Amino acid sequence: MINRSSHRSVGYGQTATAEEIDAGLRAYMLGVYNYMTIALGITGLAAFGVSQSPELMNVIFGTPLKWVVMLAPLGMVFFLSARINKIQASTAQMLFWVFAVLMGVSLASIFVVYNMGSIARVFFITAAAFAGLSLVGYTTKKNLSAMGSFLIIGLFGLIIASVVNIFLASPGLEFVISIIGVLIFAGLTAYDTQRIKLMYIESDGSEVSQKKSVMGALSLYLNFLNMFMFLLQLLGNRN
């Protein structure tokens, strides 16, 4: 009697555990997307707010301070990646919001270079593409790790080409870079979504889970923002 009862309990327990894991995964991914969405909103508000102040624009982009503003977000990414295991989840969240503000300040010039209509249009195109690509990454049964490795190598090549074009200032090369950039970050969106999903472990405590959510949101945020910027270069109407 005890053995049969125990066997039945294990069977029911396994079903319940599977359901709990599925619910936990959905909550975890929702947290990632919430962090990313809030960060994008902060970035947009910061960029628009700075762009509306000629004095701030002159101080930031008319002086050597522009290099600090442009490089600070990159420094934050490296710092978060290196220290995420040693800081508290609340600190990681705070640094993520600071990063979003710094990114907004560094991107304020897009509201001067491009008209609002094209910025809004490209944003919604990016959002629709991102949603579809992320859904593919979440639902596909295919392992995307090989594709991810290839895309990361391509990303390094893209960075080198972008640096070279700073000195060449070639419109043709800029066009090619923008197209390749869109394709790379589109692929990385699907790959990172799958990678973030696979990072979920049901037994993780709240602290670890929140840290993973922040780092996952950071990856998807960067994919979204870079895809948006490359699409804006391709489709945006300049003032």
Results as ranks from 00 to 15, higher is better:
Thr91Ser: 09
Ala46Cys: 12
Ser170Thr: 09
Lys212Tyr: 05
Ile180Leu: 15
Ile180Ser: 15
Tyr221Leu: 15
Ala16Ile: 13
Leu102Arg: 07
Ser206Arg: 08
Glu202Asn: 04
Tyr114Arg: 01
Asn85Thr: 09
Pro171Asp: 07
Leu173Tyr: 12
Ala108Asn: 10
Arg238Asp: 09
Val208Glu: 01
Gly62Met: 11
Ala92Cys: 04
Glu19Asn: 13
Glu202Asp: 11
Asn3Lys: 15
Met215Arg: 05
Val208Met: 06
Gln88Cys: 02
Lys142Val: 15
Ile125Trp: 15
Phe228Thr: 12
Gln233Lys: 15
Val112Ser: 00
Ala186Lys: 00
Leu25Lys: 10
Ala120Pro: 03
Ala46Tyr: 10
Met227Gly: 05
Leu155Tyr: 02
Val98Gly: 09
Leu74His: 00
Pro171Gln: 08
Gln93His: 05
Met227Pro: 02
Ala169Trp: 10
Val182His: 08
Ser203Trp: 11
Ser9Gln: 14
Val10Glu: 13
Ala129Arg: 00
Leu235Tyr: 02
Ile152Lys: 14
Asn58Leu: 11
Asp22Leu: 11
Ile21Glu: 07
Gly236Glu: 08
Gly13Lys: 05
Trp97Asp: 02
Arg238Ala: 04
Phe96Ile: 10
Gly104Lys: 06
Ala131Asp: 05
Gly236Val: 04
Val69Tyr: 01
Leu231Gln: 08
Phe99Pro: 05
Val182Lys: 01
Phe96Gln: 07
Ala129Pro: 00
Phe78Ile: 14
Ala129Glu: 01
Asn115Cys: 07
Phe99Cys: 07
Gly137Leu: 04
Ile180His: 05
Gln52Tyr: 06
Ala89Arg: 09
Leu173Arg: 03
Thr193Arg: 05
Trp97Val: 12
Lys212Gln: 07
Gln52Lys: 13
Tyr191Leu: 01
Leu198Gln: 13
His7Asp: 13
Glu207Cys: 10
Thr193Cys: 13
